[in-house]
Design a protein around this nucleic acid. Sequence first.
DNA 1: TCAATTCTTCAATTACTCTTGAACTGATAT
DNA 2: ATATCAGTTCAAGAGTAATTGAAGAATTGA
Lengths: 112, 112
Amino acid sequence: MKESHAIQALSALAHEHRMAIFKTLMREGPSGLPAGAIGERLELGGSKVSFHVGLMERAGLLRSWRVNRHIYYAVEIDGMRELLGFLTEDCCGGHPEICGALFETAQVCGDD
Amino acid sequence: MKESHAIQALSALAHEHRMAIFKTLMREGPSGLPAGAIGERLELGGSKVSFHVGLMERAGLLRSWRVNRHIYYAVEIDGMRELLGFLTEDCCGGHPEICGALFETAQVCGDD
DNA sequence: TCAATTCTTCAATTACTCTTGAACTGATAT
DNA sequence: ATATCAGTTCAAGAGTAATTGAAGAATTGA
């Protein structure tokens, strides 16, 4: 992953509303949610939701598709995986001790 | 890790100069570098370096100490570990498939 | 004490990001 | 066709963040 892309993705997650949207869509899984439903759950107006999901989509963290009148959004798994890869490789490059906790987390995660 | 703290840390990494500083200090290890040396390596003026390292320190990603006239900065390993923990736990919470690549990365990392 | 070195802080400017509400697009139903 | 619904886009304004250069602190050496 290119560094500038990683920075764009980090920046996309580094906001209260966007983090809330991301978590909501994470829970929802691949079926995603329409923009309106996201707004209702998080009490955000339409254009706010559009602005933030658009930004996250451009950063590669979400994907979207239309179903009739609705536009659905879901987490782009590969985008998040690439971001985590960038961080851990950058982190592990010379300093494996940082990965200690992560290693355990990943194992717990892998066991699910 | 509190979400607002995680957002602060993400935001601290989401900048070209700060990412460069972080990588430089990562390579340097626990012995760190004085502010001036960081500036020389990355061709950044003094107040720029101060501004960015200060922000990263407040976000828990760096620590600093004085040695004579110099102020040294080094990566705060625990801060970075907590951030990665936040991301992976948030990620793994319901969606272990994201951790696939991360799992491998962590293993490679642990083997170093 | 005075000057030099190293770094930080400040105030001003510039640049960017976010919010707001209105106008617009695209799809569907009457 | 017209109206309605779901969502996006736009322009203006508010709010934040980053850069700049100068001034200020802390430390050391002459």
